[in-house]
Design a protein around this nucleic acid. Structure first.
Lengths: 229, 229
DNA sequence: CGTGCAGTTGAGCAAATTCAACGCTTGTGG
DNA sequence: CCACAAGCGTTGAATTTGCTCAACTGCACG
């Protein structure tokens, strides 16, 4: 199931990344540092970007496509920790090793930068250090939200998920889902059947429209917000 | 139900806290800064330490007793984000406002320090800044663990909770619980009845012993670990 | 001695999972 | 070009899990 057609990233950048010192003073949002200092790498659908327990030597930023970070529990179930869309930074670990695995959901391009390089800059430039902290703090808030999501009912979880995706996509009320039902289920702590049934139910109650399985139109956002609890 | 006998912390420290500059260079672990720079305040059982959406002007560290941070959902349910025991830092927010509320579970003493004061030090001292970041990162890992907890079965959640408490108490296989069944339930995303039943079941299967409702002896830690999934 | 609170236990119910079947699309090989 | 297998998604039926409602116990406190 996991990475069925996965292409192991054999071309992982061992070549050092040159920090462009001047870039970090331009006042760009925090995540831009990685893009400015890094190398853009392509990953094919389902390719592993890094694995749990591998050394966390790089930081990543999605340029295009989508990425999932996940953990496989001892009983074989998979819990997806986050979906990363263009602009999102990931692979930002505290210790020396990744605590999650990361895979490309779709073909995608990812900016990669040596953690050392960024840290070296951060050691000298307090503004960069502050931005690194900021990224960690944002991630913390996001995970706290995820905790609140997981104690809701199935309907509420799906509704919250759709609203979240709609907000991030920001192209109005239509969402083009990069991920499969299984991905959604593993993110929401539900089964694919429950996700599917819930979407069908939401469609029947005119809250959404599902022209294709990957495309969802939010018809009645306030109804979803009400479920959002 | 919430804070039934709560004593609003009328004596919240508006008096400025004097930073002792020299303390921060002693190489103590990160959390010590707050203790060194701060003022120790007592809180009575169920007293509110701060509320959601209040300005996050202070950082806190538990000296003695126990603290819960929580959020009340729109449907009235309460989700506890964390239990803080002696040595734990809390109230560490990213924005200007607290995203959770904090209450004393038991009578407790808490070191309090002005956020500004710490931040001012951190701006000059990169080591302090690094420690602040470290605390955020630790919190991030803890919340990520909480996500993994919430997708498990009731048995697994309770078992995991007991093992976590045993590890933190670190007085062997016996746990003295500071919190009520309701607190535990709200932390685990279960009902009190389910928590109670699960504990009874674990006792029947000889995994634990419950001499008093607040005291739990882990008889068969490996059995719990197996449930821990 | 009664009152109130915390915890336990039971019975019935609702929600979500499991197991199974089926439809649709896509890609592959004859 | 068609046949067919594989993957993904949907739907139905049976089952399980945890929740709701309710009663009851033990204990502390006035």
């Amino acid at each position: 199931m996991l990475t069925p057609t996965a292409v192991r990233s054999a071309s992982f950048p061992r070549n050092a990344v040159q920090p462009h010192r001047k870039a970090v003073h331009t006042g760009h949002p925090a995540a831009d540092i990685i893009e400015l200092m890094g190398t853009v790498m392509p990953f094919t659908r389902n390719a592993e970007i890094y694995g749990e327990n591998e050394p966390a030597d790089y930081l990543y930023k999605v340029i295009s496509g989508a990425v999932r970070t996940y953990k496989v529990l001892v009983d074989g179930r998979r819990q997806i920790g986050a979906f990363h869309l263009p602009g999102d930074v990931f692979g930002f670990e505290t210790g020396d090793e990744h605590t999650f695995s990361a895979e490309a959901i779709t073909d995608c391009r990812v900016a990669v930068v040596k953690r050392n390089a960024v840290m070296a800059v951060a050691a000298r430039d307090t503004e960069v250090a502050r931005q690194m902290w900021e990224i960690t703090a944002c991630e913390l808030r996001r995970v706290q939200e995820h905790v609140l999501l997981l104690v809701k009912s199935a309907q509420e979880r799906v509704a919250t998920f759709l609203l979240e995706m709609a907000k991030r996509a920001a192209n109005g009320a239509a969402v083009e889902l990069a991920m499969s039902r299984q991905d959604i289920a593993d993110y929401l702590g539900l089964t694919i059947e429950t996700v599917s049934r819930t979407l069908s139910h939401l469609e029947k109650t005119a809250a959404i429209e599902v022209p294709t399985s990957r495309r969802i139109v939010l018809r009645n956002q306030s109804a979803l917000n009400r479920l959002n609890s």
